[in-house]
Amino acid sequence: MNKEKIIEGLLKLSASITILTTIGILYVLLSESISFFKEVSILEFLTDKEWTPLFVNKHFGILPLVMGTLLTTFIAVSVAIPIGITIAIYLSEYAPNKFRKIVKPLLEILAAVPTIVYGFFALVVVTPFLQSFIPGMSGFNSLSAGIVMGIMIIPYVSSLSEDALRAVPKALRNASFGMGATRLQTAFKVMVPAASSGIIVSIILAFSRAIGETMIVAIAAGQQPRLTLNPLVPIETITAYIVQVSLGDVAHGSLEYKTIFAAGITLFLFTFILNNISYYIRKKFKEQYE
């Protein structure tokens, strides 16, 4: 009896490590950021249009990094979402079973390739290719980074959306076919609306994944924080900034050191909000079919 209790206690402890991890993340981000904001006002952080903590003339406006992050994210999801959802619809409504069984694990490869490899693709293959017909394009830019990131994210969208479509009762599909609807009409008028919450979850996760992606943008998008929507010029994302600072020799406790935590907490807030929205939609959606 006693042994059983001890084992249960140990298991519970292991599970609780995950809570400690969250507390650790929050503690680390908050404590360093708070000490950052003692030196830099939140107002400056949120409104200054320049981010130059590593220069002599220091500015601490997060907006250029946020803009860079949103720009690459937007490019990535405009690739991943339409393609991913089309794949999901094709696989669940059209594809022969055999084809689906072969293609699904292949698509997973897209997400399994290390991001450093995608970064290489973006810089060494995609950018020169795009430069050949977009003359003014810089060697570092958000367009190649975003497109390549989008390709990487495709399976996140397609697999979750396909799961959602498959969870819709078959009877609805049959009813629609029985009334003379084509597969396309059935897909868009019955199946997609019925699976909408799951599909929305996959879209949110795609955003969250793109916002947090680091190596592709660190390699291919540049290191120049810039408040721009131009996808052809170098920019810098929050994640790339953290990597840039980590690569250099920045003394612990210095203001430069603290900037990566201030940037980190901004990034964390974005993904935390998106993840929670998707978690609650998913939970609601589960109840709907139970």
Partner: peptide, 24 residues
Amino acid sequence: LLEVNISNLAGVPSVIYGLLGLEI
């Protein structure tokens, strides 16, 4: 609580884990 938490952790960008590791 654990479930919400784990789902959240799975979505935390890897670079943030780097910041956690650096400090802790």
